[in-house]
Computed example of a mutant assay.
Amino acid sequence: MDGRQKCGQAAALFDEKAVFVHMGGSWGTEQELNIIKSGGIWYKQADIHEVSVKIIDNTAILLNRITLIAVVGGNEVTNPFMVTEVYVKQNGSWKLGSLSFTKLLTPGDR
Rank of each mutant, 00 (worst) to 15 (best):
D2L: 00
G3I: 02
Q5S: 12
C7T: 10
A10Y: 06
A11V: 04
L13K: 09
F14S: 00
F14I: 06
E16G: 01
A18P: 03
V19K: 10
H22V: 00
M23R: 14
M23K: 10
G25A: 02
S26G: 05
W27I: 02
W27V: 03
G28D: 05
E30V: 06
E32R: 05
I35Y: 04
I36Y: 02
K37P: 03
K37H: 05
K37A: 00
S38W: 00
I41A: 05
I41Q: 05
K44V: 09
K44F: 03
Q45A: 07
D47E: 12
D47G: 05
D47F: 08
I48M: 11
S52M: 00
K54P: 01
T59D: 11
A60I: 02
A60T: 02
I61D: 02
I61A: 02
N64G: 11
R65Y: 03
R65C: 05
R65V: 09
L68F: 02
V71T: 07
G73I: 07
G73N: 09
G74D: 05
N75R: 15
N75M: 15
E76M: 05
E76P: 03
V77Q: 15
V83P: 01
T84E: 09
E85R: 15
V86M: 08
Y87P: 09
Y87W: 14
V88P: 06
V88Q: 12
N91P: 04
G92H: 03
S93E: 13
L96A: 09
S98Y: 08
L99V: 12
L99M: 14
T102L: 00
K103Q: 13
L104P: 04
L105Y: 08
T106D: 09
T106E: 13
D109V: 03
